[in-house]
Amino acid sequence: MADPMRIRATLKGDTTEVRVLMAHVMETGQRKDAAGATIPAHFIQNVSATHNGKNVLNAYFGPAVSQNPVMNFSFKGGAKGDKVVITWTDNKGDKRTDETAIA
């Protein structure tokens, strides 16, 4: 199981701003180790965000997204205390789900 994500959801007016920091190596599959062997690709492919169970954003990452990916987005209609849940899945089938309440 990977390390937890850091999620911050802040209400600004009628818009909820969400920042997510995911802990992941995001290995491209193009680098080589000291022995010259290619390091296999290992990266997050899918990220989905839900607000009170309603899907608000789906993101698809390629290996070109930086290590420990950051993602910002915002949606309308949040209220303080509402639940924002983020789930990612990587190309090896690992997944991680974390949630936060809108502040």
């Binding site: 818009t15 995001m26 491209t28 309603k54 899907n55 608000v56 954003l57 789906n58 993101a59 990452f61 070109a64 997204v65 930086s66 990916p69 950051v70 993602m71 910002n72 987005f73 915002s74 949606f75 309308k76 209609g77």
Partner: peptide
């Protein structure tokens, strides 16, 4: 998706 603003950010290599 519906209700989400067309404004996203991330970091790339």
């Amino acid at each position: 998706l519906a209700g989400t603003e067309a404004n996203v950010g991330t970091r790339v290599k």
